[in-house]
């Protein structure tokens, strides 16, 4: 019988035998999805997310308008006060804006996922024999596009305002990649919050509480040395500061410093801690 050659759980509407044999179906079931199945399912969920993006272009507002607005606003408002001139401020600020953009975008990932989880279709995802990781990891994979767009626009608007990165093409590319990687890693934190919170608004609220101190109590917009001692101590351990410094080293100097290593270690740590938490919390909620 031709059906035996097919992978388990496959169905053929019309093509298979006329009647269904329950005993055979039960015999073919597996007790958990294999890693390769989980990867394939994640790709399918990512496909769904990109379809949704294409149909709701307003999802791109935050990654298009915000970077442009923040870059211009911060440069002209703080430039003179902090660095004496806008052009002197840009090398300090652009990597800071990149980190801020990554944080804001990753927050949106969590809020959107929570919003999506309210929909009836998530009931079907939960009832399907698929890895509990896929519905979370799929949209996050598609969101790599959003991080890419946000980072590109931030850099482009900086360059348009007269920023000339000293790190050259490779340095800029490195900073761009680091921004995307950190945004994606951070998104697991907000996704985890998303699985815990009661509503998308709650995720938004909680995420704001996390985001503001992390961005502004960092070296993103001002030199850490200019701060009072106790604040400087916090700023130095703030992971956002490490990402910002790493981005500066890459983009301005083209140097792969220890800071770049620390930033990457931080990203790995975020994923290792928060991805399992998010998946477990999602699976528990069933």
């Amino acid at each position: 019988m031709s059906t035996l050659a097919l992978p388990p759980t496959i169905g053929q509407a019309g093509a298979g035998p006329a009647t269904i044999d329950p005993a055979e179906v039960v015999a073919r079931t597996s007790s958990r999805p294999s890693p390769s199945q989980a990867v394939a399912q994640t790709f399918s969920m990512a496909w769904r997310a990109t379809k949704m993006m294409r149909r709701n272009p307003e999802q791109f507002f935050d990654v298009t308008i915000q970077p442009l607005l923040f870059t211009a606003m911060f440069a002209y408002v703080f430039g003179g006060a902090i660095s004496g001139s806008v052009s002197d401020y840009l090398p300090l600020m652009i990597p800071g804006i990149l980190a801020q953009t990554a944080l804001i975008t990753s927050m949106a990932t969590g809020v959107q996922l929570r919003d999506d989880m309210e929909k009836g279709v998530f009931d079907r995802f939960k009832a399907l024999p698929i890895s509990r990781l896929a519905p979370l990891a799929g949209p996050m994979m598609a969101d790599l596009i959003r991080y890419g767009v946000a980072a590109t626009l931030t850099l482009a608007s900086g360059i348009a305002m007269g920023y000339r990165p000293g790190g050259g093409v490779l340095g800029v590319l490195g900073g761009w990649l680091l921004t995307i990687v950190s945004g994606w890693s951070l998104a697991w934190v907000f996704t985890w919050i998303g699985t815990l919170a009661r509503s998308a608004q709650a995720v938004q609220g909680m995420s704001m509480l996390i985001m503001f101190p992390l961005t502004f109590l960092s070296n993103a917009f001002v030199p850490a040395e200019s701060l009072p001692g106790w604040l400087e101590a916090f700023v130095k351990v703030n992971p956002v500061s490490h990402v910002v410094t790493a981005c500066r080293d890459l983009i301005n100097d083209g140097a792969v410093t220890a800071q770049v290593g620390w930033a990457l270690v931080g990203c790995v740590a975020l994923v290792v801690i928060f991805a399992p938490l998010a998946v477990r919390s999602y699976a528990r909620k069933m």
Binding site: V25, R48, G120, V121, F122, D123, P129
Partner: peptide
């Protein structure tokens, strides 16, 4: 064995569980 059960079942909910955006 929830994963096994999910392979045997088809579920149609009270609120259509299909994707509005597709």
């Amino acid at each position: 064995e929830p994963h096994r059960v999910r392979q045997i079942l088809g579920v149609t909910g009270q609120y259509a569980s299909v994707d509005e955006n597709l």
